[in-house]
């Protein structure tokens, strides 16, 4: 089960690739999909590795990424919470 999810707004992405470099786990890659401006769009190539650390989003110059993280609802191990 993935612990996090990065959602890229394809129309905002300009394919600069800074998020690809910023991700410590190699989750993101520039995909073969192009948006309406002609930019190749970043996408989760390895979603199972995502921890929801949000380094990609913090690095994105176009604020194109939103990040979600799984949170255990019941009071078990706190895990990788903030």
């Amino acid at each position: 089960m993935p612990k996090g999810k990065a959602v890229v707004d394809a129309e905002r992405c300009k394919g600069c690739g800074l998020c690809v470099t910023a991700c410590p786990f190699g989750v993101l890659e520039l995909s073969a999909t192009y948006n309406s401006s002609g930019y190749p769009v970043a996408a989760m190539a390895h979603p199972e590795k995502c921890t929801g650390c949000a380094l990609c989003a913090q690095t994105c110059p176009d604020v194109a990424i939103e990040v979600y993280r799984e949170k255990a609802a019941s009071g078990s191990a706190a895990g990788g919470s903030t």
């Binding site: 300009k14 600069c16 949000a54 176009d62 939103e66 979600y68 949170k71 019941s74």
Partner: peptide, 27 residues
């Protein structure tokens, strides 16, 4: 114990920014 997992948004666009796309170059 039910293994209930919920997705929490941990990074979102700041509220004080509009929805307009920046005109800056890639990167």
């Amino acid at each position: 114990m039910p293994e209930t997992q919920t997705l929490t948004k941990v990074f979102a666009r700041p509220r004080s920014l509009t929805d307009k796309r920046f005109t800056y170059c890639p990167g």
